[in-house]
Design a protein around this nucleic acid. Structure first.
Lengths: 112, 112
DNA sequence: CTGAAACATTCCTTTACAGGAATATTCCTT
DNA sequence: AAGGAATATTCCTGTAAAGGAATGTTTCAG
């Protein structure tokens, strides 16, 4: 895994920016600034960090910058999480076993 | 999302510890120390951070501590990621559209 | 060409945190 | 009870990073 991405997400304001973008589509620096009640320079700095971590794409349009989420890092994070999934799916496996048992019982009943 | 968890994961040595535990099952402080070539105090400190973030469970057994992964935070992270999944599944939707187009064309061919 | 809007950059200060070294604690063995 | 193994804690130092304030840059409108 990429620790740069995690470092970027670990800061509350930046995480908040990410969720703003997830919910509210692409936003400009100014929009993020007002919705998060930050100062504009801090917003710019945070977006810069997010951009350098690849989490966000910055598209200059005239006077302003349009910030959008990039899906790739989230996919990466997702497939990294995959490698842990067996941890909590053990329980589901046990449920599976249980269901299989029930099914076996049903068969027994069918034959009786 | 929990930024404490992300902060804990964002440090390379700690991330490494997590992956060690994922791959090698529960480990003691000493085992982590030697496999990661850290000093023992740093290992203890990092494990403490991981523990306070809930990522890890520390079970004292006599002289040593047995460190295990806790599934819950990874589940949390997973369901947080769910809220982003539509982002990269749009492409699959577009593929769907494409397939539907092809199918429509086939119908046209059938009629000719 | 001037001014204003939208951002970026720089400088400064404060704080958090990682690593190293030394020391303290806990627990088992004998 | 003593010593050693495994781990924790403390103290120190350096560094990175966040926020504030001020200023610089770009772009459009008029």
């Amino acid at each position: 895994m990429n620790t740069a991405m995690l470092t970027a997400l670990a800061e509350p304001n930046r995480l908040h920016i990410i969720e703003l973008l997830r919910d509210g589509g692409p936003l400009t620096i100014g929009e993020i600034t007002s919705r998060l009640e930050l100062n504009q320079p801090q917003t710019s700095k945070h977006v810069r960090v997010l951009s350098e971590a690849g989490l966000v794409e910055v598209e200059p349009v005239a006077n302003r910058r349009i910030i959008k989420l990039r899906p790739e890092p989230f996919q990466q994070l997702d497939s990294w999480l995959e490698t842990f999934r067996s941890m909590w799916e053990d329980r589901l496996d046990r449920l599976d076993d249980y269901l299989r048992e029930i099914q076996a019982q049903d068969k027994t009943f069918d034959q009786s």
